[in-house]
Amino acid sequence: MAREDTYAADPEDALEMTRIMEQDQLVTKGMGGTFPEGDIPDDIQHILDVGCGSGGWVLDVAYRYPECEVVGLDVSEPLLAYARARANVQQRQNVCFVHGNVLSDLNFAEGEFDLVNIRFATAFLFRDAWVPVLKKLYHILRPGGIIRVTEIDTMGLTNSLAVETLLSYVYQTLGKMGYGFSPNFHSMGMTPVLKGLFTAAGFEQVKLFPWAIDFSCGTELHQKQYENYIATFDTLQPLALKAGLTTEEEFQDLLNQMHVDMVQENFQGVWHILTARGIKPQSSPSS
């Protein structure tokens, strides 16, 4: 059966599902919570998380703000089943997980949500889909509602040549496939364009909030990023080989060196992440 999504990796592959779950925890913890830029306004009651994956962010928000109704939208039924099971275990009554594809028609009413969140959509949105998708989300936000997008240029910067070389293959592979906005595919190129994408979709009062996650050897999040890298490189290796960027032997040699480098006491790594927040104008033009 043909996939209905445009994820770079198959979100229903067992390894990729595990990676998504682990990365979700890594990023929320590393950024300092679900809304590290500050508490949401009191008039935020109905929240949508697009590409919710295993539901970690949704469940964390529902716990932190029990007066809010939080909806998770994702194209992967296995991930949604896992998210619903977690909600049942936690007895979280103010969450709902919905199957849907943001590239297709959304079964939400105009102005239904007070806040819409997306994280790392560069993994499932081609560059020419960004503005159309943001316009869809503009439509389902109420006037004065908040759009919140968290994105990356890289998967971290390190002092390991092996890691940096493997990451370069990731950016080149994804860039050639149509993801991100880097002009030379040396990164994903997302953070410089977020403000412009928001403006093109009609949002105003755009603010940028930068975060830095330290995953150097000895830090709390080192192991999770190590595992994130292993799963990422394993998943994207066939795509990098198909693109002619490397050979299987060279790729394996780099992986072996990465394992050595990342357990050294002098291994250093930091992951720069950017959250952009915009507002739907109170008097908005018809879209």
Rank of each mutant, 00 (worst) to 15 (best):
G72Y: 00
F233R: 09
D253H: 15
E77G: 00
Y179P: 01
F233V: 01
Q23T: 11
V89C: 10
K207N: 10
I152Q: 12
Q268S: 14
S54D: 04
A83M: 02
R127Q: 14
R19P: 07
A14K: 11
L239G: 13
M190S: 06
A231V: 15
P11L: 12
L241K: 14
E16M: 03
M1C: 02
L137Q: 04
L174W: 08
V95D: 01
D43E: 11
D60G: 08
Q91L: 12
T247L: 06
Y138L: 12
D24M: 06
Y7K: 03
T150W: 03
L166K: 08
M17P: 05
E164P: 07
L274K: 04
Q282L: 07
I40Q: 09
L208R: 09
W130P: 11
M31K: 09
A201K: 02
C217N: 15
V263F: 13
C68S: 11
P143F: 15
N88H: 07
Q237F: 02
N228E: 09
L274Y: 03
D253T: 14
S182R: 00
V98I: 10
K195E: 12
Q172P: 12
I47F: 01
L241T: 12
T191I: 04
P41G: 13
V70M: 00
L48I: 07
L125I: 12
Q223Y: 13
I279T: 15
Q45F: 08
R127I: 05
V131F: 03
K195D: 08
L167G: 11
F97E: 04
V163F: 14
M1Q: 05
P11Q: 03
G180V: 10
Y171E: 05
T246H: 02
G202A: 13
F126S: 11
Q257I: 10
L26E: 05
Q264R: 13
L73Y: 00
L80I: 01
D74E: 04
G72P: 03
S182M: 01
V193D: 15
D74C: 00
E69T: 08
M262L: 05
T246Y: 11
A123C: 12
L26N: 05
K29E: 13
C52K: 02
D261T: 08
K135Q: 09
H99L: 08
Q237T: 09
M190P: 03
V170H: 03
A231S: 15
N256S: 09
E22Q: 15
S182E: 08
H272E: 12
V50K: 11
L79N: 01
T191P: 00
D74Q: 08
E4A: 02
Q93I: 13
L197A: 11
T158G: 05
V70A: 00
E204S: 06
P11D: 06
V58Q: 10
W271H: 12
E77D: 10
F126N: 12
Q90A: 13
G111L: 07
E69V: 01
M31E: 14
R148A: 08
I140E: 14
F113G: 02
L255R: 10
L141R: 06
I230L: 09
R148T: 01
